[in-house]
Design a binder for these strands. Structure first.
Length: 418
RNA sequence: GCGGAUGUAGCUCAGGGGUUAGAGCGCCUCACUGUGGCUGAGGAGGUCGUGGGUUCGAGACCCAUCUUCCGCCCCA
């Protein structure tokens, strides 16, 4: 084969596209219930947008950006993350008005140069929401609720919502010192690059999979003990709300996120169906980001959710379905063929999906085709039907068959869906 | 970026130096010229990921490369 989809990308074929369309519909529905408005931003942005917001030392900026210079000499980067572009659009078009709370959602491709693996791709897609302008813990809870409710609606209920607070700048810097001194002995044993990584972001040590690190960090101080009063209160309030609205969650003080802009609340939703790439959804509060992009001080909170990973979990739950059609119109005799295409057009004009044979197949082959397409009904038309004005409608699943006047076909078959 | 696997028919996979490369499922034809699913009999479909090399001979062995997958890193 000469050409194939580039590494880490994939085609979505008709069977899977059905699942994607359903997911999109459900997400649209849920965010609609909460009054979020859709934003669609470009596939690429000024490189600086990502560098400024994700953090110069973040993995995204240091090694994962699809960055290039365009013919005008501009440095461009394919969308590496959903939040910064949404916030850029929010500021550019003044969507925040006089500081009102503004709710936005998006569905977007995301490009990151990473080593592909199941559930990790170089182009993947995310649903996301951003609630901008509110500092209330109720906003944090709402965002988590939207994620949880959506997952439930699509049948993914076996998930864990993990929450944490990483506080503000002062908390992180004093906690950072505490972790480093706690782990000093351990750090001395590490390889150089691991040590550099740990020192750059000591919070990562808490997430380490190295058994020695896990052992050492068992006794490490918790960031929750370093929170300032305001952060502490926010976190307690958030946990209280989540409990009130029956969202099962656990507090996991070791959660850290890879983007520098998070403040206070961070959360993840994990699934155990995904192997090493277990996060279905990740998000949190980012009270400094809007200002960092040149806007007014604006508190905000949001999440991103990986659509490929949702599809993987659904596949493992066998919620897969195929493309089907309502009516397959069959010509039982050659003289009925023109009437068959007329009936097809009639059904479609009444919003009933219909297909018929165009290759001159005989009755038996047409019935086989109807079956293969999982049609609800075969509408059979031959000389007898032409004479009587009644089509023979055969319901393929039950095998029941009845005569239906041509003019009533659409309402008759359409009713199956009521 | 590091370590380890993998690639043979549309799909899932067998074959591990020796004529014309196999199975199941799917597809096509026929039994079956007004009725699909079941059955039986036929059939089509492969540059064995790609490029080099070793050999009298390579799908198989060697090297390179690409893809996918597993783990790490990291994330959705």
């Amino acid at each position: 084969m000469k050409y194939q989809a580039p590494r880490g990308t994939h085609d979505i074929l008709p069977n899977e596209a059905v699942v994607w369309r359903d997911l999109e519909g459900y997400f649209r529905h849920v965010v609609g219930l909460y009054g979020y408005g859709e934003v669609r931003t470009p596939a690429f942005e000024d490189t600086e947008l990502f560098k400024r917001t994700s953090g110069e030392t973040s993995d995204i900026v240091t090694k994962q950006m699809y960055e290039f210079t365009d013919k005008g000499g501009r440095s461009i980067t394919l969308k590496a993350e959903g939040t910064a572009p949404a916030v850029r659009a929010y500021l550019e078009h003044g969507l925040g008005g006089q500081g009102q709370t503004t709710r936005l959602w998006y569905q977007t491709p995301v490009f990151r140069y990473e080593r592909p693996q199941k559930g990790r791709y170089r182009q993947h897609h995310q649903f996301g929401i951003e609630c901008l302008g509110s500092a209330s813990p109720q906003a944090d809870a709402e965002v988590i609720e939207v994620a949880y409710r959506f997952l439930n609606m699509i049948g993914i209920s076996d998930v864990k919502v993990s929450v944490n607070s990483i506080g503000r700048e002062a908390t992180r810097s004093s906690y950072r010192q505490a972790v480093l001194s706690h782990a000093a002995g351990y750090l001395a044993d590490l390889e150089a690059d691991e040590r550099a990584r740990a020192e750059k972001n000591p919070l990562r040590l808490l997430d380490s999979k190295d058994p020695k690190a896990i052992e050492v960090m068992k006794a490490a101080p918790s960031i929750l003990d370093y929170l300032e009063d305001e952060s502490r209160m926010r976190f307690d309030t958030l946990c209280g709300i989540l409990a009130d609205i029956d969202i099962p969650f656990e507090v996991r003080p070791e959660i850290v996120r890879g983007l520098d802009y998070y403040t206070d609340t961070v959360f993840e939703v994990l699934s155990d169906q995904l192997g090493a790439q277990s996060a279905l959804c990740g998000g949190g509060r980012y009270d400094g980001l809007v200002r960092a992009l040149g806007g007014p001080d604006t508190p905000a909170v949001g999440f991103g959710m990986g659509i490929e990973r949702l599809a993987l979990v659904l596949e493992s739950l066998r919620f897969n379905s195929g493309e089907s059609i309502q009516a397959y119109v069959v010509a039982a005799t050659e003289s009925a063929r023109s009437e068959v295409s007329r009936i097809c057009r009639l059904l479609r004009s009444k919003d009933v999906s219909a297909q018929c044979d165009v290759d001159g197949k005989d009755l038996r082959r047409q019935m086989k085709q109807a079956d293969a397409m999982k049609a609800e009904a075969a509408v059979i038309i031959g000389d007898d039907e032409l004479a009587s004005g009644n089509a023979t409608v055969r319901y393929l699943e039950s095998g029941d068959q009845r005569a239906v006047p041509f003019s009533e076909l659409a309402s008759h078959i359409g009713r199956l869906y009521d």
